[in-house]
């Protein structure tokens, strides 16, 4: 099957995903071999930055969604007042 772009091929996308996961693992494994100069006690845990980045991002997404429950409106919400101008 011919694709318009090599990124449209699901096989290539799967390869990219695999590459991404390998790089993720490498960054954590590198912690064994390189002194990461921890500045704070908490940073001494293996893969602290990886876990911290992942977890805080999940929290931010959940927090944003929670806020969205109260503050989300259809994007026509302000049309009315624009017409008054």
């Amino acid at each position: 099957m011919k694709y318009e772009h090599w990124l449209d091929n699901p096989l290539n996308v799967r390869k990219l995903w695999r590459g991404f996961l390998i790089v993720l693992a490498l960054t954590v494994i590198a912690g064994f071999f390189v002194d990461l100069h921890p500045h704070f006690e908490i940073e001494k845990w293996l893969g602290f930055n990886a876990a911290y980045g992942f977890i805080t991002c999940l929290l931010m997404i959940v927090g944003a969604k929670a806020l969205g429950l109260f503050l989300k409106k259809p994007d026509t919400y302000y049309r009315q007042d624009e017409r008054d101008d």
Partner: peptide, 20 residues
């Protein structure tokens, strides 16, 4: 150390994006 810690932070943030 700086490069690795920064990559950990960013790439796992990327993982969180695609997971969510």
């Amino acid at each position: 150390a700086h490069i690795i810690t920064q990559l950990q932070l960013l790439l796992f943030s990327g993982l969180a994006f695609f997971v969510m």
